[in-house]
Design a protein around this nucleic acid. Structure first.
Lengths: 190, 190
DNA sequence: TGTTTTTAATTGATCCGTCAATCAATAAAC
DNA sequence: GTTTATTGATTGACGGATCAATTAAAAACA
């Protein structure tokens, strides 16, 4: 019963399913069969649209990065002062969407995959570069060594992410934001 | 040509080979065959001594943790003041051994595996608890909220680790130590 | 309008490869 | 002669990918 024009929905469903499946199985054990089942189609169809499992994984990573980028842009849009822009970046980094268990798990696996796969690493460098650029831009009027502080902030965010991924306690978000905010404040003090 | 008393050497060789193999292939693609080959024996013998692949991986993680613990203990032994103890912890965290490409890769994969496997997670919690305990103990005489600062330090260390794992530039060690040290100093300032 | 051809969607069956794990057999050491 | 060390061969399972076949919509055509 093939309806026409299914491709966008199918791709969308597969991307979502890939992210969800990574969260429950880990990227190490994710299988095309399980992804396809969750997305409500046959494994063959998944291959039809994406060509290979690696492409599915990459599409999932790309989606997460693009969602994150959209969030960050939206949050920064309303910021007037440099200080407000900084807060916007931090809040976006720890926004509820990014802290969904699924997304955190995908990020974790993202890092590991980037260690071995060139395409993924390139994708990750784009994210790093964008975050660094945003931070440096916001920090430049406030300190004379924005690069160093930006690196620390980025690393702190990443580290808090990891810890979050390994706790089952909810609502560490506020705590994480507070830690980063505090780090920034102290970093800006003379 | 079986010599007697091989078990310890074989196990040692397998643990080393597992760590090395994780570094080049990633834990996702590591195979018993490759581990055994690198360790100079047949896959069957590897199974003979470890029973399963998971046990090999777990033994590798355990080794890394125990090496790290030994380093930390050694570094802290010579520290007299709380401040010196803090520096020792940080220096141990970023000691050359821990920053070997192999070990960093293993740590990365360790985190991911902990997300899905209970045994590994337990092992990781031991590490977290020990690090936190060391930090809090050293911080207590210096601040009235040692727990929060300890959490930030731990996350910063972890985050710097991850970034290190994804760059090919050498010598970020000094930079990482400097960032953490700076974080501590600012965190201890009123 | 009715008929035919093309195209997209979809899956069941299947192939090929790989990998963890097992087992039986051999060879030395005690 | 029993125990330990060791491996080649094999098994059983699983996973990614392919392909041929089926269904229905759309387009071309009569």
């Amino acid at each position: 019963m093939p309806r026409i024009g299914m491709e966008p929905q199918r791709r969308e469903a597969l991307v979502r399913a890939t992210i969800a499946e990574i969260a429950v199985s880990g990227a190490r054990d994710v299988t095309v069969a399980r992804i396809a089942k969750r997305a409500g189609m046959s494994p063959a169809l998944a291959h039809h649209y994406f060509g290979s499992k690696d492409r599915m994984l990459l599409a999932a990573m790309r989606r997460i990065l693009s969602d994150f980028g959209a969030d960050a842009r939206r949050a920064m849009a309303q910021a007037e002062t440099p200080r407000a822009r900084l807060d916007a970046i931090v809040r976006a980094s720890f926004g509820p969407d990014n802290f969904d268990r699924e997304v955190v798990a995908a990020w974790l696996n993202f890092y590991v995959q980037a260690h071995g796969d060139a395409d993924t690493r390139r994708l990750l460098h784009v994210y790093h570069a964008r975050l660094r650029s945003n931070l440096v831009h916001a920090l430049r009027p406030l300190t004379d060594d924005p690069a160093t502080l930006a690196e620390g902030i980025g690393a702190l965010i990443d580290g808090l992410y990891m810890r979050q991924a390994l706790r089952r306690t909810e609502l560490a978000t506020d705590r994480s934001v507070a830690l980063v905010t505090d780090y920034i404040e102290r970093g800006l003090a003379p």
